[in-house]
């Protein structure tokens, strides 16, 4: 229908802008991947030889032509070759993607669980001091740097408590700490938004009506407040997917895991433009898809939006 078509058009526009911006930024950097790889004195290559190599990579043609060439390649699904490894980009990304998807997926799920648990407990907990303490927790979480958190978690759980082996862990065990590292900083803003929106909904007149019917606090929270309070949190969740990509870079580096994050880090260090270009597009695509999903879920949760979405 028209709504989906329009949204898809918007998504394509976002992707095109992301692609162009990355291309321009990477071109603006001094030096390039070919120079980094071949200019080192040990290889003993003469400037003429380097120029030949550049020509073979197509790096000597004008920027605009390079851009058009890359666009044409991307549109046909050809992401080019990694300058650093010489392997096709789609192979590199394809082999790194599953690990990262698992990490990010579990990380996000855990973040949502932590956020919901914190927000609900901080509303329902029996003592005022306990509620206060739970309310303060997200503030702490949000200010924790990811790399530091990873190191602390390894220290405490692996070296001190010996709960999770560092070496020779099976894949499931190896996921526990990275997932936590990724989840905790993301859960914080979610928990804060959710708690605040629960507070807000608790004050609305319809909650007074439900309480005047004799409903207890837990029933009010689950049946009447929760769904209304979720709405703003879902919007934020869509935006937080971006955090997830940044978090994956740090987490994979700290824990020495293979994945998109690690690939990104190396590609940046080597200015491996084709790889970076592909990763940015991938990230933008995920972002666009998730936010489209959020917009489609919204009318399901809030019937007031149903007619609008259809009409639009």
């Amino acid at each position: 229908m028209a709504y989906l078509a329009r949204r898809t058009g918007q998504a394509l526009l976002v992707l095109a802008i992301a692609f162009t911006a990355t291309f321009v930024l990477l071109q603006a950097l001094p030096g390039d991947a070919i120079l980094i790889k071949f200019e080192s004195p040990e290889l003993g290559l003469s400037p003429e030889q380097i120029a030949d190599i550049r020509a073979s990579y197509g790096a000597d043609v004008p920027v605009v032509q390079q851009f058009l060439h890359t666009v044409a390649g991307f549109v046909q699904g050809d992401f080019g070759y990694s300058v650093q490894y010489g392997t096709p980009v789609h192979e590199l990304v394809g082999s790194a993607l599953p690990d990262t998807l698992v990490l990010a997926g579990l990380g996000f799920l855990t973040a949502v669980l932590i956020a919901v648990a914190l927000a609900f407990l901080s509303t329902l907990a029996p003592f005022a001091w306990l509620r206060q303490a739970l309310r303060a927790l997200p503030g702490v979480f949000v200010s924790v740097p990811v790399f530091w958190l990873g190191i602390v978690l390894i220290q405490v759980f692996s070296f001190q408590l010996r709960l999770v082996p560092v070496i020779g862990a099976d894949p499931a065990q190896a996921l526990i700490l990275p997932v936590l590292t990724l989840a905790i900083p993301i859960s914080a803003p979610l928990a804060q938004i959710l708690a605040r929106s629960i507070d807000e909904v608790q004050l609305s007149p319809f909650v007074a009506v439900v309480r005047a019917k004799g409903a207890g606090p837990a029933r009010v929270l689950w049946r009447d407040v929760a769904r209304n309070a979720l709405l703003p949190a879902i919007t934020i969740a869509g935006v937080l997917i971006g955090e997830l990509i940044g978090g994956a870079v740090v987490t994979e580096t700290v824990f020495g895991r293979a994945g998109i994050g690690r690939l990104t880090e190396q590609a940046v260090a080597n200015q491996d433009v084709p790889v970076l270009q592909a990763i940015v597009i991938l990230a933008a695509l995920v972002f666009v898809l998730v936010n489209l999903a959020v917009d489609l879920v919204y009318p399901v949760l809030d019937p007031r939006l149903k007619r609008k979405a259809v009409a639009a």
Partner: peptide, 27 residues
């Protein structure tokens, strides 16, 4: 509060001021 829950709704009903905001919008 728990004891009063048995009174609210059953023995004392309540009609609020603003009908627009007094019903849960998502149910």
């Amino acid at each position: 509060d728990r004891r009063l829950q048995g009174v609210r709704g059953a023995r004392i009903g309540y009609i609020p001021q603003d009908p627009v905001s007094s019903l849960n919008p998502v149910r």
